[in-house]
Simulated scan of single mutants.
Amino acid sequence: MQVREARPDERDAALNVLDAAMLETDRVDEGTLLVAVDRGSVVGALLLVGDRIDAVAVRRRRQGKGVGSALVAAAGERRERLVAAFDAGVRPFYESLGFDVRETDEPGRYRGVLEG
């Protein structure tokens, strides 16, 4: 598996991965779109806007196999600090990557910060 910035011909496939996870992609033109590619197929995508992970998703059959972790690691190589906002269901994922996680004022929502 290779993680890198999306090529123009991979953009639609990356957006499909994010859309399948029901994530907003309206800021894609403002950020860096990273992809995880395996055997020529996009299996994961991460949208990085400034220091914020705006969206990250992995194809269902590839979840739990390190794809999301690899995408976040690649984002961390590009920024000194990463910030993410997320629901309780993915809190363990961000904590396992070393994010300092705090609950927000919005019930069931969290904010994580990772300092490089």
Score class of each variant (00 low, 15 high):
residue 80 E to G: 15
residue 114 L to T: 02
residue 13 A to F: 01
residue 22 M to K: 13
residue 24 E to D: 15
residue 88 A to L: 08
residue 34 L to E: 07
residue 30 E to L: 15
residue 18 L to A: 04
residue 9 D to K: 03
residue 16 N to G: 08
residue 49 V to A: 13
residue 89 G to F: 04
residue 31 G to L: 10
residue 96 S to Q: 03
residue 9 D to Q: 08
residue 88 A to W: 00
residue 115 E to V: 15
residue 49 V to H: 05
residue 107 P to A: 10
residue 102 R to D: 11
residue 17 V to R: 01
residue 110 Y to F: 15
residue 34 L to N: 10
residue 11 R to Q: 05
residue 87 D to F: 12
residue 57 A to M: 02
residue 94 Y to L: 01
residue 75 A to S: 11
residue 104 T to L: 05
residue 51 D to E: 15
residue 49 V to M: 12
residue 71 L to G: 01
residue 16 N to W: 01
residue 3 V to R: 07
residue 101 V to D: 08
residue 65 K to H: 10
residue 34 L to K: 12
residue 73 A to M: 09
residue 109 R to H: 11
residue 80 E to D: 15
residue 55 A to N: 06
residue 13 A to K: 06
residue 24 E to G: 11
residue 33 L to E: 02
residue 11 R to H: 05
residue 15 L to A: 05
residue 18 L to P: 02
residue 93 F to E: 03
residue 13 A to Y: 00
residue 115 E to A: 13
residue 86 F to D: 10
residue 85 A to C: 09
residue 49 V to W: 06
residue 91 R to E: 13
residue 85 A to G: 08
residue 68 G to V: 04
residue 17 V to Q: 03
residue 90 V to Q: 11
residue 45 A to V: 04
residue 104 T to R: 03
residue 116 G to Y: 00
residue 77 E to K: 15
residue 22 M to V: 13
residue 55 A to K: 10
residue 23 L to N: 08
residue 81 R to C: 08
residue 12 D to G: 10
residue 32 T to D: 02
residue 74 A to G: 04
residue 12 D to K: 02
residue 50 G to S: 14
residue 17 V to L: 09
residue 64 G to H: 06
residue 111 R to C: 07
residue 7 R to W: 05
residue 18 L to F: 01
residue 111 R to Y: 10
residue 3 V to D: 02
residue 111 R to Q: 15
residue 113 V to L: 04
residue 73 A to T: 14
